[in-house]
Design a protein around this nucleic acid. Sequence first.
DNA 1: CATGAATGAGTCTTCATTCAT
DNA 2: AATGAATGAAGACTCATTCAT
Lengths: 209, 209, 209, 209
Amino acid sequence: MDLNDKQIQIIITAERLFAERGFDGTSVRDIAHEAGVNIAMISYYFGSKEKLMEALLEWRVGEIKIRVESLIKDNRYTPLEKVNMLIDEHIDRAMQKQSFHKIMVSVQVTNKNPSILKAANKVKVRNAKVIAELIKDGQKKGVFKKNIDLILMLNTLVGTVNQNMMSLDYYREFNGQMDMTDESFQIVIKKRLSIHIKKLFKAMLTNES
Amino acid sequence: MDLNDKQIQIIITAERLFAERGFDGTSVRDIAHEAGVNIAMISYYFGSKEKLMEALLEWRVGEIKIRVESLIKDNRYTPLEKVNMLIDEHIDRAMQKQSFHKIMVSVQVTNKNPSILKAANKVKVRNAKVIAELIKDGQKKGVFKKNIDLILMLNTLVGTVNQNMMSLDYYREFNGQMDMTDESFQIVIKKRLSIHIKKLFKAMLTNES
Amino acid sequence: MDLNDKQIQIIITAERLFAERGFDGTSVRDIAHEAGVNIAMISYYFGSKEKLMEALLEWRVGEIKIRVESLIKDNRYTPLEKVNMLIDEHIDRAMQKQSFHKIMVSVQVTNKNPSILKAANKVKVRNAKVIAELIKDGQKKGVFKKNIDLILMLNTLVGTVNQNMMSLDYYREFNGQMDMTDESFQIVIKKRLSIHIKKLFKAMLTNES
Amino acid sequence: MDLNDKQIQIIITAERLFAERGFDGTSVRDIAHEAGVNIAMISYYFGSKEKLMEALLEWRVGEIKIRVESLIKDNRYTPLEKVNMLIDEHIDRAMQKQSFHKIMVSVQVTNKNPSILKAANKVKVRNAKVIAELIKDGQKKGVFKKNIDLILMLNTLVGTVNQNMMSLDYYREFNGQMDMTDESFQIVIKKRLSIHIKKLFKAMLTNES
DNA sequence: CATGAATGAGTCTTCATTCAT
DNA sequence: AATGAATGAAGACTCATTCAT
């Protein structure tokens, strides 16, 4: 599906509003108004509000695809290094595209629309496959344990990052870092989160502490 | 706040629908209809849809309060045992009150209403305090490491459990366990999740693998 | 119709609210709440909101009746003196029972309910009869002109007083008397209004300036 | 503000209904139905019921403005002639736009909405200014008395005309003129009212009877 | 006698979508 | 290709009144 500038503009606005207010909490009027386009354009371009959501998911999922696959094909790294890179990649993505990830959470928790849920599952399945390959490779090379529950491991990655994203303000306040700039805080948080999850993954994947 | 039978009936129905369809995706008509009461009753009893949500949160949070605090006061267990019990407690609660936990996720991801968000934060703060005490106790006794990031640790607990809950069907399908009864699958899942998270916490809290 | 304390309490509250917000702008809930009685009491005591209005009118009209008739029977005064006394009486009543007079205006301008309008017309008819008698008496005695349009004359009395009452604040502001106390301003206004209308009536009734 | 045909149609219908039933006594359903438009159109065009009222006032007030000011600029008449013309002008307007004038009375008696009251006061202030100029001119020329209370005088004009308008049926019945056509009666009433008020004004403004 | 609980009908407003242009 | 105008359906909420107690 090819998207022109105006369509992308609509999608980006919708993404932000869906994240901020939820799908049902956002009206097409709001989207059209904030995107600076005519109200009828959304139906005109996407058919309906729901189709707009699907287009939005498809668009972002498409983006992610490219980045993940290119990362995997590289053979200069060990399985653990690759896992660590995927972790950082995921954290980066989640922090940079917070709106999209919030939508993903919403979609999953409120599994109302099947076709939307399906689009959301695409990413999960792809990620699972990529990681599964890595795990197998690591197990073959004897650096990873047998008996690894892939889904639970991914749930810990995704869940921890999501939970972190959803409670950034709370975390910041709790740690008394309200005076930091958003950028500095984001860097700190990402670093800390990265170390935290990598340690967890090491514990899950290997026999050493 | 004392709630009569009809009010509880409304709240339970609202809880399920809010979880299934989101707050904005649920109409008071739907709630009234499914609860078998007159539409006007919701405004009559709770004032508004939003106040109904607040009453629902307050009600569930009140329940949780009692259970957590009674668990903590017991002194027959080691800090790690207590942490493990809290983990199991949390998993149990999340699996049994899935609707409520889904609402909690929704509330956090779409932080629209301040008073609702506030109610939701109550639980987080209380849990954090309880766990913080446990950690300190364990550190004093020399069984827990220094430098433990409480919030990140809790995010891993809550995030993993939430992510698991949100993708139960996906997990089941992935593991080819569609023929199990819901109860059996739930028992299996809870056991597996419990072991998984306890292992993670051990890695986060102690120096041994 | 005998009214107990609670009924009078309701009527007085209703009078104030009907005057402030109009009949349709006032809910029985508001009345009951501000009167400190149960919501069901209004239907219980008066049958309906509309019947309450009728009772209110009947009550006030009954009060007025007594005062006007006792004033008329006195024979110590000339016709013009009596007219002047009625003018002062009317001004006093309008200023003291502003709420009631505002309701009377509302009822007339929005002639929705026939039975309510009927109650309102009672007062007009009675007043007209009393004044008519006075006029005839004055004409017989040769102090009043022939060809006096009774209704127009009364409209000037009632209309001027009502208009004055409705725009008290505006008048006050226009004359730069915002710093006076309410009581002082009321006294001033009444005096000025009295002189004004008496002069008009003299012009209407007699041949001298 | 430019109004299209449909908007004017809505406004005129609203004007009639607001006059007949009061603002709160008129539902947007009624207006839409009687104007032959969709219910949603009222919100679509005017934003809300209240904004519709404001638009209605603004529209009528705008009309009046032009007529009054053009009348004043004419220099062929004496001050008293001009006052008499303004009286006739006001009577004509009140009888022709009875609905609008009833609304004005309602708005003033039930001073609920500030922005609406403000719009209503506009007319009063403008009229007051125009008359004030006339009075000063007449005083300068020695044909009008000193010490004229402008507001009281206007209250007599407006109040008498309003009271007359509100009790037309009553007046007609009282004078036994139920068999006249509406038009004939209207002409008679206007003539009589005109003479009546002009006489009053002459008494207020000059020293001759 | 008095009232808390309850309700069907009604309120205004917003919704996503369509359609003629 | 794009849009302003328009709308039926649905939204949350309030209303005056009833009725069992």
